[in-house]
Computed example of a mutant assay.
Amino acid sequence: MALTDTDAPVMADAPHPLVSMARMLWRDKLALCAALFLLIVLFCALFGPTLLDDIATKQNLRGRNAPPFDWSRGWVFWLGGDALGRPLLARIIVAAQNTIMVAAGAVAASLIIGTTLGLIAGYTSKTASLIIMRLADVIMSFPSLLLAVIVLYMLEPAVGNLIIVLAITRIPVYLRTARAEVLEIRERMFVQAAKVMGASTRRIIFRHILPVVAPTLITIATLDFAFVMLAESSLSFLGIGIQPPEITWGLMVSQGRPYLTTAWWLSFWPGLAIILTTLSLNLLSNWMRTALDPVQRWRLEIARKKP
């Protein structure tokens, strides 16, 4: 059917997908605040060590366990000082890099490996699917935190080892989700049409199936980022995560534990950073689940139609 003159402006005025997503994010104020906070955390992770590393590591015993909101000591002591007189605000900003690096590395590795295995298990032969699913069952048979504790006791508690261990424990999440999605999508008409047209298996998987599965996996990855960050903080709190002189938020909470009755701020501020980041990730994940779902997206778009 040919386009009429009245149809052309409508199609020309269709917003870019990124513009549409930005508008939907603007309408959800909680998700917008969460996104802005995560951007601040990301900025601290990228540039914090370069700008404040010297300040965060410089000891000053005169400022030992300095209380928060002491304006006379400068802005770096707004959140107080630790047991060695180092400013907590600067250390929290610097510690964001290791915390975010471990969580991002583990989520990215588990997402890529789990999705690839899930696509193979869902679309290829039953033998490959059986082998891959049994591998996932073996990994899931061990509690993730317990498996990380056992492995890190045998390996050096370095950043790389921590990323590998946490990534292995999260692979089954993406593997099972991707496989379940593929088993349903492979029977749809557009996949059958691509197969009839002679498209290769690789092209069908990565060109036709993966774009449909990706929004669900990205939403899970956003939520899983918070879980991995909490797991890293738990391992650092137990003393088998990243070791000094490196620093993470979980390690800062652990270092402040002996002073909870006399200097509560040593553990409170890094713990608050963990809570706010986790909460922001959960809020953004809920928004993404709605924004990326064509069936539910109208809930965010309906506000634009109101006069």
Rank of each mutant, 00 (worst) to 15 (best):
A167S: 08
A148R: 01
Y174Q: 02
G122D: 01
V159N: 05
R203E: 06
I171D: 00
T124F: 08
I132V: 10
I113Y: 05
A178Y: 01
M140V: 13
P172A: 06
T127G: 07
K195T: 10
V182C: 06
I168L: 11
V196F: 10
R202F: 01
M197L: 15
I205C: 00
E181H: 12
I168R: 04
A128Y: 07
M154T: 15
S110W: 03
V173M: 07
L147T: 06
G114M: 05
Q192V: 11
M197A: 15
A193T: 11
L145K: 04
V149E: 02
T201C: 07
R176H: 12
R203I: 04
V191G: 01
S141C: 12
T127L: 14
V151C: 06
A109V: 13
S141P: 11
P215G: 05
A158T: 10
V212R: 02
L145R: 05
V196K: 12
Y174M: 05
A199W: 03
L147V: 12
T169V: 14
S129R: 09
V182Q: 00
A180R: 07
P215M: 09
T216G: 09
M154A: 15
K195M: 12
I131K: 12
S110N: 08
I139V: 10
K126C: 13
I131M: 10
T201Q: 08
Q192K: 13
L166N: 00
A214L: 14
R188C: 11
A180D: 09
I168K: 03
I132R: 05
R188L: 15
I150R: 08
A136F: 09
A199K: 05
R134S: 10
V165W: 01
N161R: 07
T216F: 09
P215E: 06
F206Q: 00
L117H: 03
Y153M: 12
I150E: 06
P157R: 09
E156D: 15
R134F: 13
A178N: 04
V149D: 03
V212E: 02
V138Y: 10
D137T: 14
T216H: 11
V212P: 00
R134A: 07
I171G: 00
Q192I: 13
H208M: 06
L210Y: 00
V151W: 02
L146C: 15
L146N: 06
L152P: 01
M189V: 13
T177P: 07
S125V: 08
F190K: 10
I168F: 07
A199T: 04
G160Q: 15
I185A: 05
F142T: 02
T116G: 09
T127R: 14
I204D: 01
I163D: 00
N161A: 12
L146M: 14
P157L: 09
V173Y: 03
L119T: 03
I204S: 02
V191S: 01
L183S: 15
F190Y: 14
V213A: 02
S129C: 14
E156C: 14
V213I: 11
I139N: 04
A180E: 07
I150Q: 06
V159W: 07
L210R: 00
L183C: 15
I168D: 01
T116Y: 10
V151F: 09
I163G: 00
A158S: 10
M140Y: 13
L135T: 10
I120V: 13
P211D: 06
